[in-house]
Write a protein that binds this DNA or RNA. Structure first.
Lengths: 181, 181
DNA sequence: ATATCGAATTTTAGCTTCGAACTCTTCGGC
DNA sequence: GCCGAAGAGTTCGAAGCTAAAATTCGATAT
């Protein structure tokens, strides 16, 4: 007898199990929360494949993306990066170190305030961002392929509302709130 | 002049910026994908506060949760944990080591196949799971407080569909597909 | 029986992140 | 102007994850 290939239990089934043990939980809340964290992990795995092809780590990619998303002169303070990415300042320092060594960003002291530092993106960094974006967009499109445009819109809206709630409630995540022009 | 406290740009605004630089992207897809990863990071920060209060790391918590969600005799193979949590087998080994030292799980060789190992949860582990769940559920409920029951249901369904798509497409994430009774 | 291939887990080395301590600058009162 | 307090980054040591090699057992073919 071949070892029976058993189907992974669905998320609903798994949640149903532990709801029996702790009845105060809201099934819908649990479903959303669990799906969110599992989705993110899977997405990370998928992204890292494409990032590896571009010689970039996920963390470095996040910094480049934040800089491009900042628009304008493509400059941010480390503190702002720390806030937006939800990481400690120390982690940002190290990421910048690596991106600097790869020639993808610049780091200089702020002329107006010598405690501050300004991180900018280089032309090579901008190109690298575009390169990864091209690879990633295929995966992203595939991830959402089962949802029609209306559903995509609804999902985006609902997630954005959750995000607003958490980000407003967590100004202390990194400590600072300031923002570069 | 007080340093102007500038509002963080909304997700929509940030995405609009880089859509101008790479026009082939679908705005709705980008919105969903970015919101997902940012939400997960914020949730992690919030969870780790509660977990710290219970002397548990996020990784250890995930293992306990997976065991409880497995139901039945509360046993899983490391390979199954590796798949479900989306981690390398090595990471599972380390997590089990720590949980074992804390007396929260058991690890024994599978009598039916001595290459395999069976990980189980102890009574203390089960209690620890419940303790953290109580702390976490408050945060989870707060996260979703802006959504009415209907919206929660919709969100859960949409996320579940995405999750199915990724998990089906990623049987190679950890390599194995088997499942313990 | 025996050799070989493959699967499940552990081990090892290197990298990334975090928390805490430290440095340097700026800001506020006096 | 001077001094203490707070803010912004960096440095240092500890913890956790990964990739790759190693180990151990099982299945298949000879």
């Amino acid at each position: 007898m071949p070892p029976k290939r058993r189907r992974e239990p669905t998320l609903d089934e798994q949640i149903a199990i532990y709801l029996r043990e702790y009845q105060d939980l809201d099934p819908q809340v649990e479903k959303v929360v669990n799906a969110l964290s599992r989705l993110d992990r899977r997405m990370s795995v998928a992204y890292s494949r494409h990032l590896g092809a571009a010689d970039l780590s996920q963390g470095e990619w996040e910094v480049l993306k934040a800089l491009v998303m900042a628009g304008g002169p493509y400059q941010l303070w480390p503190g702002t990066l720390s806030n937006r990415l939800g990481l400690t300042p120390a982690a940002i320092t190290h990421r910048i170190d690596r991106l600097l060594a790869a020639g993808l960003v610049t780091r200089e002291r702020d002329p107006g305030n010598r405690v501050r530092v300004i991180v900018g993106i280089t032309e090579a960094g901008h190109q690298k961002w575009l390169e990864v974006m091209r690879l990633a967009s295929t995966f992203e499109e595939g991830l959402l392929q089962d949802l029609d445009p209306r559903e995509r819109g609804v999902l985006g809206e609902l997630l954005t509302r959750l995000l607003r709630r958490v980000e407003d409630a967590q100004p202390d995540a990194g400590g600072r709130l300031t923002d570069l022009d």
